[in-house]
Design a protein around this nucleic acid. Structure first.
Lengths: 224, 224
DNA sequence: GAAATAGTGTCTCTTAGACACTATTTC
DNA sequence: GAAATAGTGTCTAAGAGACACTATTTC
């Protein structure tokens, strides 16, 4: 702890790994860089973090190169990097969570892969992919995660399906709508959508009105 | 594969910054490296992440060098690093949240600083310190954050005080105890502690019995 | 009309918080 | 006894989920 300023030799190889989710046919999907040739493994989109480049700049480059566009939402999450190898050889991976709305095109060289049927990834990126969904779940209370996975106009049934996908359990329809109503988060449009059979559903848009209490209750039951 | 491997030139300077909290006189405190000489700024404990060293190894070194011991709990949180300067010159800081039980000694060269009265830090570390408490708050539902800030034996009033410190609001005594009871998280000891006036309080220890539902309700009211 | 999906009204059960109390200590 | 802190019993209000329904579409 004597020398405060480390030599350049202490620089570490850092990669930014992209966990970009979207919806496809009612399933949660992850953006994967396709195997280009025989023997080359599928991988998550990634870029190196070059020396002297600010994190946000590198993240922007990751989005431009890998998504061809800005995601509807993104957040940097905790770094990982022990033991498991990365395609770049980087000893450290910074995970970038990103969301694209349902129906977004996969850029050339990539494809949307159902999270239930991912191809084999390298060890590091396999860990990353395992972290992705729980990380999304952790954030959906505080960030409009579900809304960013949907197009601008959506039905309440679609929104509920997204919540159910992310939480991995069924929700009660009446309760879900009551809570949503109470939060003043969505705005009804003067538009209806009919899909196959059944009564057409009214379309809504995300339009948060008031910041509510934010008085999160204490929860002990997730501990242990 | 080899075409993907970036040159060593893309290595980045990475620092691990330590946000180590404890309790002192009923206040939440943060471990600060004291100003050694005139003109040298106070700073959070940190170490560089050297090339080729695994993250967990570097974290362990951070703990040994800065805390002189292992913290009661720790977690790596999202990296920061835009614009704001770091004492090391590193362009990237990985924040390591750590907790020490109430009454822990500050190692030589460091001191516990009430979070309400922190000394001036560099720009990067000031951002880090601002992130610390909300990050703790985010984790206290899922990790035994409050329990790790207390010694092994504690009273329920002390536990409630920690929750109130972290949440920044008063809690209802009967409700707090009812919920705690229902979660089966603590175990009563056959010991009581008398402090000044008033009825002596029974001591408890953290001893999670059953993993409960984990059925987190959907919350819309933190969005917007 | 049958099937399917959208959307709502009401009941119950759980729980957070308010209130009011009892219990045990020091002074 | 007064003051202070620990700990508890009961009521109320809000919310989640169950249930049962109505509404509107395609076939």
């Amino acid at each position: 702890m004597s020398s405060r300023r480390p030599a350049a030799a202490s620089a570490a190889l850092v990669a930014l790994d992209c966990l970009c989710y979207s919806l496809r046919d009612g399933r949660l999907t992850l953006l994967i860089r396709s195997e280009q040739e025989r023997g080359v493994r599928a991988e998550l989109p990634w870029v190196p973090l070059p020396s002297g480049r600010a994190l946000t700049v590198a993240v922007r480059r990751l989005f431009v190169e890998s998504l061809g566009a800005s995601p509807a939402w993104s957040e940097t999450v905790a770094p990982i990097g022990d033991g498991a190898a990365h395609p770049s050889g980087a000893e450290l991976s910074i995970l970038v969570l990103a969301l694209m709305p349902a129906g977004a095109e996969a850029p050339p060289g990539t494809r949307w892969c159902p999270v239930t049927a991912l191809p084999a990834l390298g060890a590091r990126q396999a860990s990353a992919a395992a972290i992705g969904i729980p990380a999304l779940r952790d954030r959906m209370d505080r960030s409009p995660v579900a809304f960013r996975l949907l197009p601008e106009a959506f039905t309440l049934s679609e929104l509920q399906q997204v919540y159910e996908l992310l939480l991995g359990r069924r929700l009660h329809k009446a309760s879900f709508r009551r809570a949503l109503q109470g939060a003043g988060l969505v705005e009804a449009m003067e538009e209806w959508r009919s899909e196959g059979r059944g009564r057409p559903a009214q379309l809504y848009r995300y339009s948060p009105k008031r910041r509510r209490s934010g008085r999160r209750p204490v929860r002990f039951d997730l501990l242990g």
